[in-house]
Simulated scan of single mutants.
Amino acid sequence: MDLSDILAALGLVLLALGGGTFWSFSTGVMPGLGRTDDETFVSSMRSINRAVVNPLFLLPIFLPPVPLVWAGLLDLDDPRGWMLVASGVVFFVGVIVVTGAGNVPLNNALDGSTSSSTAARAAFERRWNALNGVRSLSSVAAIVLAVLALVV
């Protein structure tokens, strides 16, 4: 096992943790919150958005491209290297960029909203869920690329 293998395995573990978070929100958390009243929805999302600002949550969300691209750059003479780079890029664009440009601004707007819970939810829920769907699918694509790279 060389450095590229270790980095690729680390990247895949981080991808799985981060991707699992988005998938869980898409398939369980948000559908569950979607069944609540506006006040419960808004207060719950505000609480969740504050709680997730911690290293255990943020590292698998923002770190996976580093070991993946690094591992890929060590193996660019092999298709495996290109798949690892692609995995890191897909995750970076589909998760990190989408999070920073879309989900975080929506979270901040919800947190600072002085509108009614009904209006705050209407401005947040549908857009946030769509963006989280992009993050979920991008995570799955990145995981598939990383797994393929490891079994090639």
Rank of each mutant, 00 (worst) to 15 (best):
T36Y: 04
P64N: 01
W82M: 12
D2Q: 06
T27E: 15
P79K: 03
V85P: 01
S47L: 15
M1T: 11
P31W: 14
F22T: 13
W23R: 14
S139C: 07
G133H: 05
V42W: 07
F92N: 03
G81W: 02
V151M: 12
F57T: 02
M45L: 05
A141E: 12
T21G: 13
G20N: 06
A101Y: 11
V53F: 08
P67R: 04
I61M: 03
L131S: 05
G72R: 13
A9Q: 14
S116D: 04
G32S: 12
S139P: 05
A86Q: 10
V29S: 11
D2K: 08
V147M: 08
V42D: 06
D111P: 09
A101M: 12
P60F: 02
L150G: 11
W128G: 00
V13G: 09
F22E: 13
T99Q: 04
I6S: 15
A123R: 10
T40S: 09
A51I: 12
T114R: 12
D78L: 00
V144D: 04
A119S: 14
L59P: 06
V104Y: 06
W23E: 14
S87M: 12
A101R: 10
S139E: 05
D77Q: 11
D38H: 07
S117L: 04
A109P: 08
A109T: 08
F92W: 04
F91G: 03
D75Y: 04
G100I: 02
A130K: 06
R35D: 11
V69Q: 03
G88R: 09
A101G: 10
A16S: 15
S26R: 09
G100C: 04
I61W: 05
V52Y: 01
V152M: 10
F62A: 02
I61T: 04
D37Y: 08
V52W: 00
L63Y: 10
S44Y: 14
L145G: 02
N129M: 14
W23T: 15
G88Q: 11
T40E: 07
V98T: 07
M45P: 08
L150C: 07
S24L: 09
P79R: 01
G100R: 03
F124S: 00
V147H: 05
W70D: 01
M83D: 02
S116T: 09
W82T: 12
L58Y: 15
M83F: 11
I48Y: 07
V147K: 03
P67G: 03
V53Q: 08
V66R: 05
L73C: 12
A16Y: 12
V69F: 05
V134A: 08
A8Y: 00
A8P: 03
E125W: 01
P60M: 00
A141L: 13
V95F: 01
V89M: 00
